[in-house]
Amino acid sequence: MSDAAPILETRHLSKSFGALKATDDVSITLQPGEIHAIIGPNGAGKSTLIQQICGALRPDTGNVVLDGRDISGLSTQARARAGLGRTFQVSQLCMEDSVLENALLGAVGAQGAAWRFWRRALETAELRATAEAALARVGLSDEAATRCANLSHGARRQLEVAMALTLRPRAFIMDEPMAGMGAAGSKRLTGLLDGLRQEAPILLVEHDMDAVFALADRISVLVYGKIIATGSAQEIRSSRAVREAYLGDAE
């Protein structure tokens, strides 16, 4: 797997908040077709890492490379256009709008259609097609007209994934997509992500260990901003260092 050129790569990323080293020389790759899970205790720096990959935070040193191109200098929106499909740990949705309108926003972004002022977005066939396909993919078609604020927590997590899907990204970057979901919801989302890796590889930050061990081709363990181990589910489970640093206190 590691012989193919990676889709996404971080090279020696470091970021400090004052004296706190939140990201410490992190170099990881995301290969075509894989799910690469990042696990680690709370406060390990997982979200901080994702923010640097997606452009919300600037690393002190290091680079982010997508399809062989250094995207470190690009804005969040330029990285999205270059092919990063991100979901947030805390849902970032337009709560006052309907599910379909949220998905339409993704379609507007995907098609660079923000500079249209006359025709209704809801009545524009190509925007609707993209939005509805994404909703169907995550199983939210029946909720299209529901106001986002009235959506269950699980459905909001699904909508987050649908919005990333509208972009047809080169790589998915997901920050705890299962956070706060019940067992049934987690299971459904696990099935969905499993099928998604053929479209684009997924960098998956996740706390739900069942989901991680079921999905991940590779797992990296992040502790105090440092990657302490990378390997298959089997290797990570049996690594002593990992058990001491992380899995041990989880059990």
Partner: peptide, 9 residues
């Protein structure tokens, strides 16, 4: 953040 993540400026 949502708008930027959708590739819009």
């Amino acid at each position: 953040a949502r708008v930027a993540t959708m590739g819009l400026n």
